[in-house]
């Protein structure tokens, strides 16, 4: 079936299977592999996207039910495809190890910082609790979000 949506600022259409998730559609049909598939059950946060501006796991969104809605993925955080301030902060803080969880964390961190430009460490940890990293100890990830929060989202 046809799925048309607003994807990273552009009108896009693709054929999707009726039962497939938005994550599958993003990766396989729209060839945007930044949203990662690890758990397929909303536990890991690697597939985090913004759906009409709200942070969700794209693996738990029925693609066909996203008809006409606005989706933003890690690839589309900046209009020109350059580095987003949160992405730059992750690089500078060394918050990336294998990198698999990074796109989801960056989308989640961006959602947090738009709602709360100067979060406390406790707020950062609660806001990122749905994004699992299996390499690091989260310390540098929290550092990166704090770094990004300084002066960028005002």
């Amino acid at each position: 079936m046809k799925l048309s949506l607003r994807l990273n600022g552009a009108d896009r259409t693709a054929d999707v299977a009726p039962h497939e998730s938005l994550l599958t559609a993003l990766r396989e049909r729209f060839v945007l592999p930044g949203s990662k598939n690890a758990c397929d059950q909303g536990e890991c946060g690697s597939c985090s996207v913004l759906l009409d501006g709200e942070l969700v796991c794209s693996c738990l969104v029925l693609a066909a039910a996203a008809e006409g809605r606005e989706v933003r993925t890690a690839e589309g955080l900046t209009p020109d495809g350059g580095l987003h301030p949160v992405q730059r902060a992750f690089v500078e803080a060394g918050a990336v190890q294998c990198g698999f969880c990074t796109p989801g964390l960056i989308v989640a961190a961006d959602a947090l910082l738009r709602a709360e430009p100067e979060p406390t460490v406790a707020e950062i940890r609660e806001a990122l609790a749905g994004n699992i990293c299996r390499c690091t100890g989260y310390g540098r990830i929290v550092d990166a979000v704090q770094r990004a929060s300084k002066g960028i989202y005002e």
Binding site: E54, L55, V56, C57, V61, A108, E126, A127, G130
Partner: peptide, 9 residues
Amino acid sequence: VGSPQIRNA
């Protein structure tokens, strides 16, 4: 409940 992602949905 879950995480921010789950609570939003």
